[in-house]
Design a protein around this nucleic acid. Sequence first.
DNA 1: GTCAATAAGAAACATAACGTTCCTTATATT
DNA 2: AATATAAGGAACGTTATGTTTCTTATTGAC
Lengths: 202, 202
Amino acid sequence: MEKETQTRKRGLALEQTIYAVTLRLFDQEGIDAVTFKNVAHYAKTSRSVLYRRWDSPSALLVAAVHHWAHENSGFPENLDKQSFPDTGSLRGDLIENARQIEGLHERISQYLIKFTLYQAVNGEAIGDDLLKKAEEGAVTLGTLLATRAINRGEIKKVPTTEVLMLLGNIRRYYAFIATQQAPNPEELIDQIVLPAWLANQQ
Amino acid sequence: MEKETQTRKRGLALEQTIYAVTLRLFDQEGIDAVTFKNVAHYAKTSRSVLYRRWDSPSALLVAAVHHWAHENSGFPENLDKQSFPDTGSLRGDLIENARQIEGLHERISQYLIKFTLYQAVNGEAIGDDLLKKAEEGAVTLGTLLATRAINRGEIKKVPTTEVLMLLGNIRRYYAFIATQQAPNPEELIDQIVLPAWLANQQ
DNA sequence: GTCAATAAGAAACATAACGTTCCTTATATT
DNA sequence: AATATAAGGAACGTTATGTTTCTTATTGAC
């Protein structure tokens, strides 16, 4: 009889498994299922390992969310810039962008829930570096769309960062707070985003 | 020796005390402090009372947030309409509104943290009735400001509900996700809100 | 390849909170 | 005043937390 393959994980590989199990338990079975005993069992490790790293299940959950957030940072603003279609007009491009973001609705909700959970349990928000990455993604794509529009003669200059971030932000806000009442992409663009892009063009 | 005044709370009065204690414990000492033992102690009641009503501390916390949200529903959009100052211009009124909302920043953050905490622990969002109340407040005040602007000849008609809600929503979004990077009220109005109000006036 | 260092796994133990049951006591209602 | 209702309190078993100690697997240096 062969000895079974020994695979005792250590270090980062072990921690990643623990984080994954923690979030799966939280997502699928609720916060009460996030116990050290449960996590140790499903991660095929021991409680000792958990206690060496975290003070409590809530501390582990916060760490897991933090890890998750860093792995997912920049989402969802960094849509694929290379293949972003040129619809032939600024309005069309913005609507296309809004539609793509709308398609990520579920994932955005997950993102925001974990984000706030972190804040609620940890007492303060996740670090600014995550927000910076999201901002970078929005600015990069926004600048691409703005450059196209400038070449078409629709606008004269790239809008401010606040305006560039508006599209992702407002959709994200609705995804979070007011899911049902979120205006559709066309309304969003025509009533709010496009007017902001066209204003202040001197 | 007189018998000490008997004040054994019951029903709603008792539950309100329990909710208050639960949220205070959560806010000040964190989620790990929200135990039935702790809550019973500070609410001067017994664990039996808690177990009769809720299945677990997390269920109690969700109920407490739900109760809190209903007591605070409509906040912060329902600023005082009667005394809302007339600054003489639409832009001035909108900036004044943004400033008032900014002054409520801390309370808005609390509101949103509890809101999402509810969603994170409970699995689904708080009922739409709360959102409806917030929407009503925004529409009422927004309509007042719009009517003034129409009388001044600045705009021709009241903007859509989506546009009216933008002011509170966007500030709320920044209060929640991107506290540090929130644009100041003047930037917010000039770059985003006022353009939306002025668009689609034909 | 051997050996030492490091870290994971496992078991035992004490503490604390959960969850339930039963009974007593205060409050409210008739 | 009598009765119904609900809170308070105690006891008990179960479960999870938190700590300690030891064994065992993995890694890396030699």
